[in-house]
Write a protein that binds this DNA or RNA. Structure first.
Lengths: 224, 224
DNA sequence: ATCTTGTTTTTGAAGAGTCAAAAATACTGG
DNA sequence: CCAGTATTTTTGACTCTTCAAAAACAAGAT
């Protein structure tokens, strides 16, 4: 019943990969998984077969992989640890939100339940990490609420940033310097399909134009 | 230059083992190392040869093993992480001093330099962990000061407990309930060679008799 | 349908860390 | 000094995770 760090990383990657699939697809192709993990396709295949035998994944040869409910629960627990650790590092240890990902990547595999619950208490049972990613509860369950992004939200209405879907350091810094972090209230004034761009107005009438790719990484909800 | 968790554990065990050797001996026998690590002797031999090849240990077949200066530095860094983490868990996270050892055992291998230095700053650059074990500095150096124990200190003079040389949970709890933790001031009133016992007076005239074995695990210095 | 291209699976091998059991060595009592 | 005991080293094997390269397969284009 012990999940090694490696297994936990595969579960996380499958979880994230499946959730990032274009709608309609249910199974994550091996190649995607392999490159997400930085291993060769053959390695991913081998490991996924092991996961399937352990009842953690559902594997269809030449098609792809998804998590079983059990695997999903496990992945949720890893995510919970990761995200609580990230928030802890930011709130308690004073790190920047753009520099905690790697550390959490390591800590998530060794931190005990007791320590995690302590952090959870200390942080007031938060429901999202510094990037707005939801923190699963102690049984590994996540309550997924579908959200608009800057690419899909209504125009001309104030919205609050809730989540940033990219842990890339440079991107996080871009978000920070442009005051687009979770909690900020902004507004989309227009979109240009052909220019592939989105026009955003921030507080104090700051305006900027960002690409559609970036816009799709910022989740928002109606401000209020 | 990467030391795996396993290597780090061997270094720690060799360090501790050599330092716990009866005076005169310089090399830690394989058997001791093996049982300290909970592996078979053959495994220890294999690993120690690897360490020797890497320049971290000095190995004499059929005799034993010790650390090279380089290995000692590495061990010092692991100890630094371990002890800062322990203190952090007690002071910041509110854990009991008797329940942080195992957690630190895991965290010591994954915590980054940045995080460790953050903890160090946060804790005010402490020089000892909750058990009084000295915290090596950032270059892995420990300044070892020879200390008296309850078995060797002068009689009838107030002394302050500085260090507890046994991480065993039950022993730590015994120490705590009897107010013998580092910082407490006590006094040794007498020793009985044949009874193998030591008579201790604590604050408020509390008196108790402890065995020599236990007494030798409590380091003290003249109170002042 | 067949060919080509791209992905996936297999196969054989490697390194790290471990064990069990056999072989070698050291140590101790007579 | 020799026998018997205890410790240490070797040997062969196993698990986990990985890679490179060969083989198998799927799918689109002609």
């Amino acid at each position: 019943m012990l999940a090694s760090s490696t297994v936990e990383n595969y579960l996380k990657a499958i979880y994230a990969g499946v959730n990032g699939l274009r709608p309609g697809l249910r199974l994550l192709p091996m190649g995607h998984l392999a490159s997400a993990l930085g291993v060769t396709p053959g390695t991913a295949t081998t490991m996924v077969k092991t996961l399937a035998e352990a009842g953690l994944a559902e594997y269809e040869p030449y098609v792809g992989v998804a998590l079983t409910p059990q695997g999903e629960r496990l992945a949720g627990l890893v995510l919970r640890r990761h995200r609580l650790v990230e928030l802890f590092l930011v709130r308690v240890m004073g790190f920047g939100w753009d520099e905690v990902h790697d550390e959490a990547e390591h800590l998530e595999h060794v931190v005990s339940d007791r320590l995690i619950e302590r952090m959870d208490t200390m942080l007031g049972h938060p429901d999202a990490d510094p990037h707005g990613d939801p923190i699963p509860n102690a049984d590994g369950t996540i309550s997924p609420q579908p959200q608009d992004t800057l690419l899909t939200c209504p125009l001309g209405q104030p919205v609050t940033v809730t989540r940033v879907l990219d842990q890339n350091r440079a991107f996080l810094q871009f978000v920070e310097t442009n005051r687009l972090k979770p909690g900020e209230t902004i507004q989309v004034d227009g979109r240009d399909e052909s220019a592939d761009s989105v026009l955003v107005t921030g507080t104090e009438a700051r305006r900027l134009t960002i690409g559609a790719r970036a816009a799709s990484k910022l989740q928002v909800r109606a401000a209020g």
